[in-house]
Write a protein that binds this DNA or RNA. Structure first.
Lengths: 347, 347
DNA sequence: ACCACGTCTGAAATGCATTTCAAGAAAATG
DNA sequence: CATTTTCTTGAAATGCATTTCAGACGTGGT
């Protein structure tokens, strides 16, 4: 008693158990390897055999057992996408940007016929990711936003775990990151502020996040070049939620001179800033210039429309997947900056 | 030559191949079943054995091969979440609501230690889903939004494929759906319009989508009860994107008397309507009452703030997963309406 | 007519963990 | 002390597809 085909014979038919390749082989009067070859599109079978087997397989609604398949093969053709929902759920703010990014990745994976395993339970321990590789669950990881887990990512890179990151591109980091040119993004915002003649700038964002820090640096660089003609201040909110940002701005303008330019780390944060400023009687663009980040769909339709730095999510997904697969196949992949530009909206 | 442990012996050690359970068993001087029991937390092993094996396993970074595991077991502990990114990408509108729903489902799955396979490549053929079950890829499906695929869902239900749907709850359908009480949602909007003294209502939405049709029906029921005191019209846009809705409303008000109340199928659509109306000189709430749907985070911060029907995404996720697992375990599950209420915002 | 070579197909080995069944050891009972 | 239970543990069978390797069949060459 070896194969389920024989089983079937010995212990009566349709046991409500699924059919196996052996069953199809028997029915088609060929061997398992032949069925396997047909189903995987191998050119080593005659057209006649191929059609015959295919017909039988279809008739019986047979589908290759993916677990047996993956067990035998080395690759899993599955990619884990790690997305920290938690950090977005704070204050019920699901930034649409991340969603678009996810859609971009999903699309790119499906083009290559790879499965997408979505991890929402985010671990800070490199070992957990190593385990998933060892367990042959996935071929690699795509991190959407590196958040504050840089040290872990370095460790993972050292361990040779294939992964790519959407986020800050820092050539000194040992891993492959793809992202917009955050430093340039910051400079674009600063240049825009100068063009609008603004001199009291406020940066909203948390420097613990590498992406955001680089935007901050870009903005600061422009300010510094003005040699004292521009004052720049920073507001770090408790978390990245709408609510925290809203409160943060309220508190800020209660305690300080109001800024005449605000650069927020995201369009969502920009919306929060707009609301808080309006409550205090300041409206953009009359009283202050505003720049957000991401160019999420509502940004253009908000009142006021939000000037913002665009991120190309579709392209991002394609590149992330491409880089990851390079690594999975044993190659190296280097970080990439995506085209980054300012979308000016002056209602 | 049977087990990889023996293999190891015969063809030299660390072949850069992963360690298997047999290896751990050998190292720990126990048998494979014992290791298996330890790793699956079976109570049939002594505490001493457990710790000893665990220690060795950890030392060697061993993780159970999930493919071998799933091959042997019947369950896959994986759920496929089907989400038609495509239909949202039209016009680059990623409705944050779907994202929140996804987050809710992801959270609920992770609580139960189930993996989430995200399918973005949406098939209209029931057989493709049957294949995924036959291939032991997943235990069942969660459809986020039934869109226009009702017939297929019926077929799937008949075939006994375990799945649940977020969307319209229709007791006459043979499958399990979870969703807000769309009819009630429509009635709430109508009642609100009456309270505001509005008499020329416009419904924006496509009746091909069951959810939306039911909202329409709810609204119409209220209008009908007014016996002619209320006029109600419908605007069906080309697709559900922001852009199409915006253009649709523009065209509508160019050709018709402007409505004094608008009920839009989503908050995103509501935003589009607001923009189009404003361009024509009408502002809410002065000139017209507006009700959206979903209560997405920006709705409360938009100008004007959007009155909307709330959907509880977190609860939705939990219920969807619970129902699905009931079905996977062979039980039946019946459709459920979630609490549905109007969030009134009058800026 | 015989050998070489190319094409197609099949038997057996392989990847790895779980489950069943039975046996051995230890503890409880008479 | 003999015997019945109760725990622990292990050997072997099982789930299923892919890959390697060797064999079969047919065709072109001499």
């Amino acid at each position: 008693m070896q194969d389920s085909a024989e089983n079937g014979k010995k212990r009566g038919r349709s046991r409500s158990m699924g059919v196996s390749m052996a069953d199809i082989a028997q029915l088609a009067k060929v061997s398992k390897p032949t069925v396997s070859r047909v189903l995987s599109g191998s050119p080593l079978v005659t057209e006649a055999t191929r059609e015959h087997v295919l017909k039988i397989a279809r008739e019986h609604g047979y589908a290759v057992n993916r677990n047996a398949q993956k067990l035998r093969q080395t690759r899993t053709d599955t990619v884990s996408v790690v997305l920290d929902f938690g950090s977005y759920r704070g204050g019920r703010i699901a930034d649409p940007f991340i969603f678009e990014l996810l859609a971009g990745v999903a699309e790119a994976l499906s083009v290559r016929n790879l499965d997408l395993l979505l991890s929402s339970q985010v671990s800070q321990d490199a070992r957990d990711y190593q385990d998933q590789i060892s367990a042959r669950m996935v071929d690699g990881f795509i991190f959407l936003g590196q958040g504050e887990r840089d040290p872990m990512l370095r460790q993972m890179a050292k361990a040779g775990i294939p992964f790519v990151v959407w986020g800050a591109v820092d050539p000194t980091e040992p891993y492959c990151a793809v992202g917009s040119d955050n430093f340039l993004g910051g400079k674009l915002a600063g240049t825009y502020f100068l063009k609008c003649g603004r001199t009291r700038w406020l940066f909203i964002g948390n420097d613990n996040h590498a992406e955001i820090r680089m935007r901050h640096d870009g903005l600061s660089a422009v300010a510094r070049a003005e040699q004292g003609r521009v004052a720049i201040d920073t507001l770090t909110c408790e978390d990245m939620s709408y609510v925290a940002t809203h409160r943060g701005v309220q508190d800020y303008i209660a305690a300080n001179d109001p800024p005449d330019a605000i650069f927020a780390f995201s369009d969502t944060a920009a919306m929060a800033a707009i609301a808080a400023m309006r409550e205090a009687g300041f409206v953009s663009p009359r009283d202050y210039a505003l720049v957000g980040y991401n160019n999420i769909p509502p940004a253009g339709h908000f009142t006021p429309a939000i000037t913002t730095v665009e991120q190309e999510t579709h392209l991002a997904g394609a590149i992330l997947v491409e880089k990851l697969m390079q690594m999975v196949e044993g190659g190296r992949a280097n970080s990439t900056l995506l085209p980054t530009r300012l979308i000016v909206r002056e209602t």
